[in-house]
Design a protein around this nucleic acid. Sequence first.
RNA 1: GCGCCCGUGGCGGAAUGGCAGACGCACCGGACUUAAAAUCCGUUGCCGCAAGGCGUGGGGGUUCGAGUCCCCCCGGGCGCACCA
Length: 808
Amino acid sequence: MPFQPLTQEPEIQRRWLETGAFRAKRASELLPGSKTFYMLVMLPYPSGRIHMGHVRNYTLGDVTARFRRMRGYEVMHPLGWDSFGLPAENAAIKNGIHPAIWTRANIEEMKGQIRKMGISYDWDREVASFQDDYYRWNQWLFLKMWDRGDVFRANRTVNWCEALGTVLANEQVVDGKDERTGHPVTQKPLEQYFFKTTKYADELLACMDGLDWPENVKTMQRHWIGRSEGARMAFDLDSGEQVEVFTTRLDTLCGVTFMALSTEHPVIEKAAASDPALKAFCDQVAALSREERLTSDEKLGHRTSVSAIHPFTGEKVPLFAANYVLMDYGTGAVMGVPAHDERDFEFAQKYGLAIPKVIESESAWDLGTLVNSGEFTGMKSEEAVTAMIAKLGDRAERTTTYKLKDWGLSRQRYWGTPIPTVHCAACGVVPEKPENLPVRLPEDVAFTGVGPSPLTTCSSFLDTPCPSCGKPARRETDTMDTFVDSSWYWLRYLDPKNTELPFAKAECDAWSPVDLYVGGIEHATMHLIYARYFYKVLRDLGLASGPEPFKKLICQGMVLKDGSKMSKSKGNIVDPDEVISKYGADALRLFMIFAAPIEKEIDWTGFEGIEGATRFLKRLGRMVDDHGLSADPLPAKEQLSAEEKSLLIKLNQTIARLTDDLERRYQFNTVVSGLMELSNALADLPADAPHRGAVLQYALEAFVRMMSPVAPHVAEQLWSQLGKEGLCMQATWPEADAAYLQADEVLVVVQVNGKVRGRITVPATATEDQRREAALACPEAQSHLAGKEIIKVVLPPGGKLVSIVVKG
RNA sequence: GCGCCCGUGGCGGAAUGGCAGACGCACCGGACUUAAAAUCCGUUGCCGCAAGGCGUGGGGGUUCGAGUCCCCCCGGGCGCACCA
């Protein structure tokens, strides 16, 4: 049958759906001892059209899911939609379409495109975060976390746009203005909700060692968490106040010549109230945009009228407000030790402060031996810290700080999960009662793009009785960060219709953790830390078990066009849907898998690659056509011709190799090249081979099954043509036959002093001695051995090589 | 600045310390064709007529043997970025 993907693929997809071949079992249906595999791809945002990045991601996942099914695993392979967030709201403002309508239409559109790719998703498990049967569980979990003290409210500085009446993300602020409208943006403190992620900082760090994740992602997370051991200590001020600092180098305490505090530090704010010059300095630092602070590292400070008192010497050291001290790390205050800290050094030079050396070591910033430190002189850094803490008493203690911040989840937006709390004049901020969930988003609101979120003016939403005292109160109008939605969605897939709980523990126990998670590297920190954090919370709530959600992670590379990212603005998008309409899904899938290793970028320079994939599929079709059918049994090995035997050896070696590539190495591109090599070997079988029909039939049946994960439509087609009943995707993955893994005669390479000098053929059964003798006797090697002394002969395991070492 | 990753033909890439360049793309030559497309066969790392030599960014090291492991340097990418 000719290769006609455009008519054949939809027909085959229909057969798969009718058979229910993609359906994953519920925990109760799983037989005891059955192997499960949870294949997960990252939750997509329904932007409207799929792009090549999706195609690559979903193809990788599908190859794995289909392979595991054929290997006898029960497979979970779902998809859903990250369907809250700003773009829908912006579309509503621009086009006057309600976000829900826009979102639903986009999901339908993209689902249709994904279906055409033949990805084996169990669509009965689809979830969409904008639906209240999903986001009610965000609210439910929020309340559980509230009860456990994992949620708190605090003031935090945000990018505030007065004209728009909303908070903006850092990426949306360019040159101190809203990138869309140009309205000015200022920094403003705002009362917000936070998840206490720092509570799990140590565990998040410690569990990372056991994860089968790319090393660079693990490193990024370690840096993000940023654990740092040191000490806190309190300095008295001559104003009668105290300032607490965090330092990793308490041993340098005797080198302190100044104190530097963040411009936002309470002590500075208090001093600024009566010091206009200091106030002006702080305002000037605050006015600098994010980028300006990043690009200029010039140290700036302003001396206050206050001094700190050194706890050992009683000397007074000046106290500065400084631009290089961050309020949200440590205590927002630094003890300035210019001789042993690069930043303090720069600062001291600029402001003419003393730079006394108190540590003797290889470089100024290293640990070493104390000098000029009174009674501590002569001690090693480590023992000095212990001694100083002892002497400082209540003033100091060892402590650990983290760069990881608590997760601010408030968004002053409409299109997100309403935070289920109520503001009551009498009771304060009160959590909603669980039985009143979900707190639904009101639908009858207008989107103007100006002023605060429509929730703040929607009385049907706002007016609600206080859950505690019952008096009239006002609903919270903040909604949740969409990262909340994507932090546990993969557990909802396991039990998407549950109305009692977000998911049943039994389902989680049966399927969790995810065996393979595939997605973009851009989620290396935020999403993948939040999801790990959530899992630990869920575990502590008794909803989930086990420490970590994602056993293995693969970050796929991007799909580029002519070296740069595909984007609407560049007009360089290659639309997957159009490619499928022209070449078919299998050709696209094959190309995506073959073009590069998963983690590397693919540059879509032209259509040559996909045309190559098409050629390969067509050639296979012709091969199966020409072969027809054979019912002859495969003859015994002894009866086969040499060519037939070597074809079957190639076949079985390929089975072994591809199985390993897919099961252990997760190396997909070589799966395709392995298939291509094997197809070349099949084509080379002589037309007059004595058992051609039987051998080809046997080899093709295995071949078609092996190509099925990558090119499933063509595989089904050829499977039928080979006279096989049932679906190829439900057939068993071929098992390598040990009798055909090695040829009777094997090639042995002969090296002399590390250089290849000859090749000999020996029986596979040859002993080490026989191999050594044969190698020494080989004429090409002989010419390099003549007149030289043989030092030793190495026969590495595997028997494929003999290495002769000579002298003279 | 700190950290991580990567440098292999014209291109994408393969090689799990053991024959470097599998497989594909492109190119070139040939067959089929009135012609073209499609298809099929073949060549293609570099130097050399050849024998042979050289070759995985550069230099050093470990090893019988290094693209692969270790050290230094060069080039590219990514992440974090005054983290006390």
